[in-house]
Design a protein around this nucleic acid. Structure first.
Lengths: 341, 341
DNA sequence: TTGTACGCGTTATCAG
DNA sequence: CTGATAACGCGTACAA
């Protein structure tokens, strides 16, 4: 794999001509073009991305920041992003921030130095100034999975509010009145909680503060929530729980089982995301589905468009979530009695 | 964020001096060094990785090729790799090959053009010549999760043979004689099958060909296997299945349930990997655990060492798997009768 | 079509 | 011994 000079020499042209052939610019006689093309193939020559980036061209590298790539939602999202990026000849660098302010800053800095063409940010930033700096420097970025209105940039996400509303409505519809919610420390979760609250209003049920719990996404935190909740006095216990993430949902399920509760008989559970985790529980998890592939593909498309146009489109793309009813929710027994009596 | 020239001008030195300060080479008076250092901080200057890569320096980019980043084993592995790489100031570019020869080649080419410092290859390559080419070009690479002896390069993996042996032994120990195995089209799976076979020899049980099934890792393929297996005549049915991957294991469990089999009463299941999936099933999946974090960390360390030394260490690092007994395996009832009678 | 300056940092060489 | 000058690496783009 040689350099331009090798090709130029072998094809008996100047490096400028070689460059023109590669970039399909300028004009030249067809035989010359063919000769160069052949030589390029013979030498298996590929222009160095680094060298061309140096002259202001793109690096064809995208930076992807997520909370944790080992979280199924993000790994599935990453897969969709990667596929789309590769289709466009771009590579993706991934960074897991752990929702940690220092890492967020550090990784952004690291990627900036590598001249990435743009950022996909799927991690809620503590220090919004870091993001604003990117905007000031005209570095394209698209927010993934976080429809944060305080930042005036493009964002692609699911309609979290509607998702929360649908999840709670489904439970109300099944006769539940006491619905717990366990959410993450993320803007998306705030919106889901708002949807959950809105459903309470529609169904004219008071929304109890002590049912709302925010934490970081992990199975053990889901367990801990149930643990805590079901240590209260029996009258106030919820009959259903909406977990804003599937790791939390699984924790809730496991915690409930440990407490001797049967699912869905004694406790209904709704999750969010519809990753592989939702299909592996028994019974299958009723969950609010995000169109992960579509979101991943779209976020890349928007970003690439911004890179090419050199300015932020400030699009705000919302996908509609879909409630997928599996086995972890059921009609509340008491409510059946209510109806039959 | 300026360039060297800006720093040089502001600090009233030449760019060479700035460079020397950055790289800690050459010598100069302490006040000069401090002045440059301060200016660098003031201007928030960071040398362009691209420009320095152009002069033969490292890009500090690692290429990671796996079958599928959305597979929990790989996403968890990726996380460990990423963390270690970041500790060393390096970034990771990920590529999911889908075990597809064309993608393997294409991605490798794409990454080579980006001058990655080295490769971590966690995907079994169809065309080994592509790998050999890398070796010829002296591009450092380490094989992850594939202890393929036909390639003379460094590799980090779990002891697949022992894992297969342990899984089968555990089942034999519990009185099972008819043990099915569902494996992937991967070298690691071949080794696990060998271990499974070795256990058969030790326990003096014939190893039936029709129990061995190879496919690609997915829940549906696991289901299909059970479907197929339990459509045979009843006498030959296995009482236990060893799935070489957790998606397959989950498929087996789901397929068995659909067939009306209770787990572990009617069918014992052992998985492999010990990812998040193993903890989400009910009952929990008995599985062969890989030390994912250790492997991820090690593979980065070996690769970085090779990059720095400029040659392959040709190390072959094997971690010992650990059988984790959860709820999907139990003593075969018939065997209890055998003993008691 | 070709010559050549340019972009950015590195490093060998040379002057002070 | 300190610090500056200049060539280099690779591809791009404009002037010739």
């Amino acid at each position: 794999m040689g350099v331009v000079q090798d090709v130029a020499k072998k094809a008996d042209v100047s490096i400028a001509t070689v460059s023109k052939v590669i970039n399909n610019t300028g004009r030249m006689r067809e035989p010359t073009r063919q000769r160069v093309l052949n030589t390029i193939k013979q030498l298996n020559f590929h222009p160095s991305v680094m060298a061309s980036a140096l002259t202001g061209k793109r690096t064809k590298i995208l930076g992807l920041l997520v909370q944790d790539i080992s979280n199924p939602l993000f790994s599935e999202m990453a897969r969709a992003i990667e596929d789309r990026a590769h289709e466009q000849g771009m590579n993706v660098m991934m960074c897991s921030t752990d929702n940690n302010a220092e890492k967020e800053k550090k990784y952004l800095e690291l990627l900036k130095r590598k001249q990435v063409d743009g950022f996909i940010i799927g991690s809620s930033f503590h220090d919004k100034n870091v993001i604003k700096e990117l905007i000031d420097h005209k570095i394209p970025l698209v927010l993934l999975t976080q429809n944060d209105s305080s930042l005036d940039v493009s964002k692609v996400s699911v309609d979290d509010f509607k998702g929360g509303y649908d999840a709670a409505s489904h439970l109300f519809f099944n006769g539940h009145h006491k619905i717990g919610i366990i959410a993450q420390h993320a803007h998306s979760s705030s919106l889901r909680i708002k949807g959950y609250r809105a459903a309470h209003e529609v169904y004219e049920v008071e929304c109890k503060k002590e049912y709302i719990y925010r934490t970081t996404a992990s199975i053990s935190n889901g367990k801990a929530y149930v643990e805590k909740l079901f240590s209260q006095k029996a009258t106030a216990l919820p009959t259903a729980i909406f977990a804003c993430n599937e790791q939390l949902a699984i924790g809730v399920i496991q915690g409930a089982k440990e407490k001797g509760l049967e699912i869905p008989k004694d406790l209904s559970v709704v999750g969010f995301d519809n990753t592989i985790l939702a299909t592996t529980t028994v019974p299958g998890l009723t969950t609010v589905s995000q169109p992960i592939e579509m979101i991943g593909k779209k976020v890349v498309d928007v970003l690439i468009q911004e890179i090419e146009e050199g300015k932020s489109l400030k699009e705000r793309i919302l996908y509609t979530p879909e409630l997928i009813v599996r086995g972890t929710t059921s009609v509340l027994k008491e409510s059946i009695k209510d109806i039959s009596s």
